[in-house]
Amino acid sequence: MAQRFRWTRRGYVAELEDAELRLLRGLVKDVVTLLENRQDEVAPPGSDAGTAEDAPEAGAEPVADARPGDAVGRGEETPHDAAFWALVGGLDLAADPVAERSAPEDPAVARLLPDAMPHAEPAERARQRALTEDALTAAKLADARRALEALRSVRVTVPHEHAVSFGRALNDVRLVLAARLGIETEQDAARVHAVDDWRDAQDVEATMALLYNFTTWLQETLMAEMLSELPLEGAAGPDEEEERA
Score class of each variant (00 low, 15 high):
40 D>F: 03
40 D>P: 00
40 D>K: 14
41 E>H: 06
42 V>Y: 06
42 V>T: 10
44 P>F: 04
44 P>Q: 04
46 G>A: 14
47 S>Q: 15
47 S>I: 11
48 D>N: 12
48 D>F: 13
49 A>Y: 14
49 A>P: 09
50 G>Y: 03
51 T>C: 07
54 D>A: 11
54 D>E: 13
55 A>E: 04
55 A>P: 00
55 A>R: 15
57 E>S: 10
57 E>G: 09
58 A>K: 11
58 A>R: 11
59 G>W: 05
59 G>C: 00
60 A>W: 11
61 E>R: 15
62 P>Y: 07
63 V>C: 05
65 D>M: 06
65 D>C: 04
66 A>I: 03
66 A>Y: 07
67 R>T: 02
67 R>P: 00
67 R>W: 12
68 P>L: 13
68 P>K: 13
68 P>S: 05
68 P>F: 04
68 P>W: 10
70 D>H: 00
70 D>C: 07
71 A>L: 15
72 V>G: 07
72 V>Y: 11
73 G>A: 15
74 R>F: 12
74 R>K: 13
74 R>N: 08
75 G>I: 00
75 G>V: 07
75 G>L: 06
76 E>C: 03
78 T>V: 02
78 T>H: 02
78 T>Q: 03
78 T>K: 02
79 P>E: 01
80 H>N: 04
80 H>Q: 13
81 D>V: 02
82 A>H: 02
83 A>H: 12
84 F>I: 05
85 W>G: 01
86 A>P: 00
86 A>M: 09
86 A>E: 06
86 A>S: 12
87 L>G: 02
87 L>D: 05
87 L>E: 09
88 V>H: 03
88 V>R: 13
89 G>I: 06
89 G>E: 11
89 G>P: 01
89 G>V: 09
90 G>W: 08
90 G>M: 14
91 L>M: 10
91 L>R: 12
92 D>C: 03
92 D>P: 04
93 L>H: 08
93 L>T: 08
93 L>R: 14
94 A>W: 10
96 D>P: 00
96 D>C: 07
96 D>V: 08
97 P>G: 05
97 P>L: 09
98 V>T: 08
99 A>I: 08
99 A>W: 14
99 A>S: 15
100 E>Y: 05
101 R>N: 01
101 R>M: 15
101 R>A: 14
103 A>Q: 12
104 P>S: 10
106 D>R: 09
106 D>T: 07
107 P>Q: 08
107 P>R: 07
108 A>P: 00
108 A>H: 01
109 V>I: 11
110 A>W: 06
111 R>E: 09
111 R>K: 12
112 L>E: 00
112 L>Y: 04
112 L>C: 04
113 L>T: 02
113 L>S: 04
113 L>P: 00
114 P>H: 13
114 P>E: 12
115 D>I: 02
115 D>V: 05
116 A>I: 07
116 A>W: 05
116 A>T: 09
116 A>D: 08
117 M>H: 10
117 M>V: 13
117 M>C: 06
117 M>F: 05
117 M>Y: 09
119 H>M: 14
119 H>I: 06
119 H>E: 15
119 H>C: 06
120 A>M: 05
121 E>W: 10
122 P>V: 03
123 A>L: 15
123 A>T: 12
125 R>D: 04
127 R>H: 14
128 Q>C: 03
128 Q>W: 10
129 R>K: 11
130 A>K: 07
